[in-house]
């Protein structure tokens, strides 16, 4: 779900950087307003490393396997720290593995950062539910919803940015294929996030920042 360099036109790449910079500034502003802005740093760094390493966690989804992306979990656990954390994780992935891109760093941060912030909002408003089933539904919506939103943003930006026009049929086919290809990931990530949040709620509830 990372757009590489060379695909998007300059305007879209610069726009992505501008939006990512704006969202990062907003996040830093909200973090600075907290009683101890540095208190969340260790957790944010640890989650950034987890986000970076998430691509190593493969879950078999027949006939293939998927790897975790974790925007929903980042939002639920980091709150306003999520977007800076995603930005750093993406920058490391781009420089170390060539995964994603440099000119598209802003766009990629928006693709994963906005769903993370949406997951933060969802957890902040509904994360306090104590009933097990309700908590599982909220956790699933956090994990799966964030992935689906990221896929929607990815598809929209990619199709808007391609330098050649696809005909309407090909465009519909591409969107359908992208959605279907990522549906197993959304389901898998939803179930994994339910398990992670359930575990943390029982053992260390303070780690779910937005509850």
């Amino acid at each position: 779900m990372h757009i590489p360099d060379g695909i998007l036109p300059l305007g879209l790449s610069l726009g992505g950087w501008a939006i990512a910079a704006g969202l990062t500034a907003l996040s830093l502003n909200r973090i600075a307003a907290q009683p101890d802005p540095r208190a969340g740093l260790p957790r944010a760094a640890m989650m950034t490393a987890a986000f970076f390493a998430a691509s190593l966690i493969h879950i078999p989804v027949p006939p293939s396997s998927v790897h975790l992306v974790l925007p929903g979990l980042m939002g639920a656990m980091l709150g306003w720290y999520a977007l800076p954390a995603i930005l750093i994780g993406l920058a490391f992935q781009a420089v170390m593995f060539g995964h994603g891109g440099l000119t598209t760093l802003g766009v990629n941060a928006v693709i994963l950062g906005l769903p993370a912030l949406a997951a933060f909002g969802l957890t902040r408003n509904l994360g306090h539910v104590t009933q097990r089933a309700a908590a599982a539904i909220v956790g699933f919506a956090t994990g799966a919803g964030a992935v689906l939103l990221a896929v929607a943003l990815f598809a929209a930006i990619l199709l808007a940015g391609l330098p050649a026009h696809l005909d309407a049929g090909a465009e519909r086919a591409a969107i359908t294929a992208l959605a279907l290809a990522h549906l197993p990931l959304a389901l898998a990530e939803g179930m994994v996030v339910v398990a992670v949040l359930g575990f943390l709620r029982r053992t260390s509830p303070e780690m779910i920042v937005a509850r």
Partner: peptide, 11 residues
């Protein structure tokens, strides 16, 4: 199991 593994790792 993957979720619990991830949660343990995060803790």
């Amino acid at each position: 199991a993957t979720g619990w593994l991830l949660a343990s790792l995060l803790l």
